[in-house]
Write a protein that binds this DNA or RNA. Sequence first.
DNA 1: GGAAATCTTTGATGTGGCGCAAACTGGCTG
DNA 2: CAGCCAGTTTGCGCCACATCAAAGATTTCC
Lengths: 231, 231
Amino acid sequence: MKIDRTILKSLPLFERMTDADLDSMLQHASPRRIVPGDAVFEQGARAKSFFLLLHGRLKVTQVTQDGQQIIVRMVHPGDLFGFAMALRREDYPGTAVAAAESLVIAWPTDMWPRFVEQNPRLAVTAMQTIGQRLEEAHTRIREMSTEEVEKRVAHAVLRLSKQAGRPVETGIRIDFPISRQDIAEMTGTTLHTVSRILSAWEAKGMVEGGRQKLTVTDPQKLLNLADGIRD
Amino acid sequence: MKIDRTILKSLPLFERMTDADLDSMLQHASPRRIVPGDAVFEQGARAKSFFLLLHGRLKVTQVTQDGQQIIVRMVHPGDLFGFAMALRREDYPGTAVAAAESLVIAWPTDMWPRFVEQNPRLAVTAMQTIGQRLEEAHTRIREMSTEEVEKRVAHAVLRLSKQAGRPVETGIRIDFPISRQDIAEMTGTTLHTVSRILSAWEAKGMVEGGRQKLTVTDPQKLLNLADGIRD
DNA sequence: GGAAATCTTTGATGTGGCGCAAACTGGCTG
DNA sequence: CAGCCAGTTTGCGCCACATCAAAGATTTCC
């Protein structure tokens, strides 16, 4: 399979690169199609490659010693992933699993310095990306520290609808299969509690649930709840 | 006050730089002494500078809308801070307060690209630094999601003793004034709970407490507890 | 040295949400 | 179409931890 450079060029990450540089990057790229449930890489494995998600949706998970799993973050189309740590670490700190049919491009890890050299802006952009992720992580830490479960779930759902929302008749539909378990692992709670919360919201007409489905029907109410505004 | 370049050179961050480059960086540097309780910068303020901590200890905090405070991370000597976000953001996402008498160097934010250009290794190192911080943040998210309070506190104390520990006769002393409130804000709990936990530990001979003081007397027991090994 | 301010300890009480258990539902398979 | 399986819902009891309250302990300041 060949990848057209125009696809890359449409991404903010690469928009400033010359065609020649892009082509040279693509020479070392190997595309990979991932089916839902399959992993792009596994926690602890040697970091041989770094990746770009072209299409689909991934979740990056970590498991604790006692087997509990958490979702560290979602990967959306256009995101680089599996690279931040590769610079200092030898192994991947988490597992990247496809939540939907996905298409990724893989590059050998040792190509990274060369690409950066070729295009210093890439380094700056990459750094901004990590900086942003760090900030998101801190936001999440703050939420986990101070907010009760319902607010955290509200924030998570809003984030999902922003990053992966597709407008449908009744509202904004999360555009990939997502379970209560997933939401629980993103918010540090149990699927039971998430189920209860979503049921309550559904009764209030804020969301519409379903098996691996979620549609936000009243974003405003959800936002109020997330911001702690009682009604 | 003048800063000697040998101080910088002893830091991993700068060890590969030439004397000339270091001198040129130092020309734009302004040293600042901060007394405990004073802030280097405040959350929301325009990010005019980025900083290096030479000596002392800082805590980076964030406040939520409803006034609750959390400690995002500690800054230790040799750490760059207040820069990661400055690349994409205009303002500081948190407040940096001195926990002990501290000495920082400030550079104008707009110097950053120039320094990077002058010394590309700086960019790589900086990125590794942020990558590492991101990983730490994820670790903390995982802890907050899955672990109960006592284990989280154990992890926090162990981290502190590693990053800011000074050997004393009875064990490893945290080398700056730290209150139960601080530990609570690092672990997402209340000072009451932290106090209770530390009292219990003290009874078991694992730590020695005191007003703004903490000494780990039995790191092994603490480690076992943090790793979930019951005794 | 006494008073004020700050930090810490400890008790009593309440509750959010977890753990366990069981029933339910929609979708897929043979 | 029956049966199975993964995901979801819901009830109930309990416990870890927050909250409220108040009294010590240390340091600081006049």
